[in-house]
Amino acid sequence: MKRTNADSLRRLVLCCIGSLGLLATSGAGADPSTAGRSYNAEFLGPVLDDSLIQHGKETYVVAGCAYCHGVNLQPLGEAADLMRSPMVGADDNGNVIGPVVRAGFPQTLSLSPMPQYSDLSEQQIIAIARWIHYARQQGRYKELVAAPDRRGDAAAGRDYFARACSACHSTERDLARIGRTYDRQKLRAQILAPDALNRQTSFKVDRRGDAKSLGRQRHGALLENYSKEDVSNLVSYLQSAR
């Protein structure tokens, strides 16, 4: 079912492209073996279950971002590394990315300045930002899971918690005695991918802005900005909540 949703959206995107007249499906020179094939996006990888994110990825590619910044944010040449960019990390739903994309970076010592994309719509900007954040989260998750777990600084973890987590969580309430419930390894896993938020997204649920969707967004934003030290420090702090 999920795949069907993704495919539907993809078909919709392709329909729009096809309507521009770019994709001829018949003609005197058409090879019968490929007649009807509209496009080939194998280089994009498998279709993602979340149709919104898939749409974001395709919008990112069609806009031309991937040529310099890489489909999965592995930059080519002098392009900015979006995986590590603090500016991107500070973005919320395109509020930072949007103005930069629209204006470009004409003032630079790089060989080729980033072009301006002043013609992109608000929805295109949001879709592009959605893919960038998703790709960052995926990339950072892989990095952090692969990183060796080193004992952190509990005091620094407490400060981080107060700054980034305390709006929703408290070691006096929902996370009371969490250090007894989970060992260090499980705490780490929960910080990187909380079980409570681990379910498939859907367009309807996300639109409702329910608590879990908001939680997922906030944890996603934290995840893409965590350093290895942040995670170790948080684990050490939460271990002390007994």
Binding site: A24, G27, G29, A30, D31, S33
Partner: peptide, 13 residues
């Protein structure tokens, strides 16, 4: 040009 495309479709193979 776009209306008269011929070879692009078959070239993917």
């Amino acid at each position: 040009a776009l209306g008269g495309l011929s070879s692009a479709v078959g070239i993917s193979s």
